[in-house]
Write a protein that binds this DNA or RNA. Structure first.
Lengths: 206, 206
DNA sequence: TCTATTCTGAAATGATTGATTCAGAATTGG
DNA sequence: CCAATTCTGAATCAATCATTTCAGAATAGA
């Protein structure tokens, strides 16, 4: 017997009906709902409506609400990790990779009306699930590593001053960036964000 | 007749039983629960347990869950506003008022395990109540005004450079500050926060 | 086609949600 | 003490919550 849980039963005799829905697409839809409403603000009905599946199908394949949330956060952070890998592949100078990243961060803050799912999740603290904490920390560490490495390279190239450590500047940028989301949630003023980004770039380059 | 709602009935003949619980203390207790669990994560039973009152008393005096939440946010932002007024009264130099404020901000980030209620509320976006949005924006504007005014005074005194506008620096500080809460939620590393604060002070003073 | 197995959809689960009811306790002025 | 009024507490409300059940549809290999 290889039965671990219902969905892992593997018959040695016959196979049967296949799952009708696309799990990845369904998780993507669920992620959007959690993103907009938060964990506690999202009901299972909200989820199954968006995913267009029955709750029994959800529980048979993915699991309960918390399990689904973990998959959503995993998907979200995976997308972000892939974006960083793409940026690292760029042939451009470290400085221009960095400024492009900062400028894109501004754009995302302004476009994404619900803010950042990782930040929202960190602040909501709805569940103390170790997997979620780990995913959020990993996501943060990825960004930290990307920024500090890129700054270090730009310093080595002599494009930005090495008065401060790349690690401190990376921590600092991540902090400002988080604040931009809050600023935009409260004021809806793109100019504020753009000016702060300009200031940050000026501070580290000069 | 002066009847607006049940609790505003004023008899012209006789008075009657008084409210037994202290409303301000009860709201304070409720605030702590909302602070720890968020709006959607807090049930009415969580609230009445902490406030040590019956739900009928709550509805007869304060109102429903949303009304109570408004009062909690009002109390929270009022406490913060009073703190700023105290700081403004100080006879110390603008620069030392500013650095004291920044150092105290670091302490609060590190001490307050649940982060900042205003920031949490902004990110949760649980209710689109105009009063809450207004209170949060007001709180933000208060801090903005205090910081930019203090920076302007320090500039006038020649204690910090006037390369940048006080308004930009105020926006910038508020953003970093918000990020510190997230950083501390994820990493629980006081040194990170302290270093960032030192860096910020250094940047604006030199 | 048949049989074994799995997936789906509707219905229902008990628990909890925010909110209300109302009898009786409390307090006031008379 | 009485009468008028208001507040409190226990019980309860319908609605919704996350989750489960199960009959029947679907599909694989034999």
């Amino acid at each position: 017997m290889f039965q671990i849980s219902a969905r892992f039963v593997v018959s040695e005799i016959t196979m049967a009906r296949n799952v009708e829905f696309n799990e990845e697409e369904a998780v993507q839809k669920a992620m959007e709902v959690f993103w907009a409403k938060g964990y506690n603000g999202t009901s299972l009905r909200d989820l199954t409506d968006a995913m267009k599946i029955n709750s029994s199908s959800l529980y048979n394949t993915i699991g309960d609400k918390q399990e689904l949330f973990v998959k959503c956060i995993a998907l979200y952070t995976e997308i972000r990790a892939k974006d960083l890998i793409q940026r690292e592949k760029s042939k451009a100078s470290a400085l221009s990779i960095l400024t492009k990243y900062i400028e894109d961060s501004v754009k995302i803050v302004i476009i994404e009306k619900n803010g950042c799912l990782a930040i929202k999740t960190a602040f909501e603290g709805a569940t103390d699930d170790a997997r979620i904490k780990s995913l959020i920390k990993n996501d943060n560490d990825n960004n930290y590593k990307f920024i500090s490495d890129t700054i270090a390279k730009a310093m080595a190239a002599g494009d930005i001053s090495d008065d401060e450590s790349p690690e401190l500047l990376a921590d600092f940028f991540i902090s400002v960036w988080t604040g931009w989301y809050e600023s935009y949630l409260i004021h809806r003023d793109p100019v504020k964000i753009k000016k702060m980004a300009q200031y940050f770039i000026k501070q580290i380059t000069k």
